[in-house]
Structures are given as C-alpha cells and as structure tokens.
Design a protein around this nucleic acid. Structure first.
Lengths: 149, 149
DNA sequence: TACAATCAAATCGTACACGATTCAAATAAA
DNA sequence: TTTATTTGAATCGTGTACGATTTGATTGTA
C-alpha cells in the first residue's frame, strides 16, 4: 500500500512533467502560426471530423463549456473556425473549419513532424506508451464513473 | 514520416487526456483539504526536502516564477507554507512547511491511496509507464536543449 | 395547450501556466 | 571604487481549465 502510493506520486508527477514538456515543444512550433497547443488539439479533432457541435467537441477533447466557449471564440476571431447556430435545434452551435485551417494544415503538420523527428522516438516506444496511457486513462475514467454515480 | 506524425498526434492527445484525468482524480480527493492538484505537487516536493528556494522548487517542478510566486502566496495565506527571505543572499526566498502541512500529510496521503486502489493499477503497469514517460520526457528535454541553445 | 424537466451554451469566479518585463541584490570587470 | 553584468523574485498580459450558475430552447407529460 505504501509502495503503491509512492509509485503513484511518481507517476502523477511524471505525467504532469511530460505533459508540460509536450506543451512546450508544440508551443514553440505553433507560435509562428498564431496557435496555442490546446487550439491545435481542436484543429486536430476538426481535421478528423468537421461540423461538430460544441457538446461533441467538448466530449472528444474532454473539455467543458467553460474552457471551450472562450477558446473557440478566440479561434473564430483569428479566422480558424466559424460558429453557427443550428437551424433544427437552436440550442446547438456547430463549429466549421475556415479556409485558413485547411490551407495551413500541411505546413503546420510538416513543421511538427520535423520537430518530433529530433526527439528520435521509436515506433515501439509510441506503441507501448499509448497502449499504457490509454489503459490508465480508462481505469481512471471507470473509477470516476463508479464513485461519481 | 506520415506514420510518425499521426502516432505523435495520438500520443500527445493521450498524454493530454490522461493528465486531465489525473488532475480530476486528485482534485476530488484534495478539495476537502482545501488544496489544488498543483499545490499538492508542491507539498510532495517539500515533504521530500524542506527549506528550498523558489528557484530550486521551480526547477524541481518544472515551473516558472510566473506560476510559482502567486501559487506559493496562496498556500501561505492558507497556512501550508511560509516564505522567508534569506539573510545571506537577499535575492533568495526560502519556503518552509508549516505545522498544518506536517499534520495533514498522513490523512491526505491515506485518502489518495484509497482512491488510487480503486483504479486497480498493477506494479508492472506503474513501472512500465514511468520508465517510458521518463524516457520520453528526457528526449523532449534533450531536444529543447539542442535547438534552444 | 400548459407546465415541468431537461438540455446546450454562455457566463462568472478561481487557479494554474507561460513568456516578457521589471527591480533589487550580488558579483565581476574596468 | 565605480560601473556593468548577472541573478532571483515579483509583476503583467494572455490563455487555458474547472465547477457553478444562468439563460434560452426543446421535450415530456398532464
């Protein structure tokens, strides 16, 4: 039990730090494009699937309305996306990618790919890490479901 | 190259999400104690080694003065720590744990341990994840050193 | 139809997190 | 010594991030 606790302290710290480093790496690449890291994650989601509601976007990113609303507004001001209220259900607001987002996709991803290659991460490392992280993420979410409900 | 990019997108997203889930789990436990997750990480660092300067604390947590100064001030207002300017070098400010931080250490860690056990994480999982995360963290840091310098 | 419950966004208040700037103290150089 | 540089904190502005509350639209039910 004591071992688990101290392991966990190390783990939560390692995740905290690595997330921070990732943030810094992406920030340095994205800054020239006038994008922040979380904003890039939004584009990533929208490049996968365009025309989604705030609700769906929030679910996919694990973000609430308090975070997303002002962030999307900023992205709209900067010409990345467009907000439009649904005609069928006026409660819903859909997000659409703007030209700029399509145009800049290639140069942005190219710059990121360049930067990532400097880190010299192997395919096995990616695989291993993602599998483990997703496992952990799932367990954390299961727990909150069982205790929170 | 294309594979690496899409793998990396998945990875940065997985870390982003898992970090968020960890944050939520700890927040739910720490809230009753009047602590935030980053504040707990500060206590964790100080329980390891007390009487450190802002500078050293920032280095250990990977946080800058712009984050740390207001955070420590809040923790001082709430009675967790005390700030004191060094006599030898008046530029330095040392942080000291207060009684409350010592007193609450045991109940806090106990509650966290309880919550973690619900997630059912194995020793191998901890080990594997931490090793991989630290490897990655190191590579990210090496890169920023070589490009930034 | 009418009214309650529900749902989607927006808003508000608090707390990180970072880069850039400022300021005082300490150290190095002239 | 006097000046120049460096160093450690604090401050400022911008941008997440979250829970709680509010507002307006929709749906369910009497």
């Amino acid at each position: 039990m004591k071992d688990f606790l101290s392991l966990n302290n190390q783990l939560c710290f390692a995740i905290y730090e690595t997330a921070g480093e990732f943030n810094k790496l992406y920030t340095s690449v994205l800054q020239p494009f006038g994008l922040t890291y979380p904003q890039y994650l939004v584009l990533l989601a929208l490049w996968e699937k365009d025309e989604v509601s705030m609700k769906e976007l929030g679910t996919r990113l694990g973000l609430g309305t308090g975070t997303l609303t002002p962030m999307i507004s900023r992205m709209q001001e900067n010409g990345w996306v467009r907000k439009e209220r649904s005609k069928e259900d006026e409660r819903k607001v859909f997000i659409y990618l703007e030209e700029k987002a399509h145009r800049d996709k290639s140069p942005i991803t190219k710059r990121i790919a360049e930067e990532i290659q400097l880190c010299d991460i192997s395919l096995t490392e990616y695989d291993e890490l993602m599998t483990r992280l997703n496992e952990l993420d799932q367990k954390l979410k299961d727990r909150s479901k069982s205790t929170g409900a």
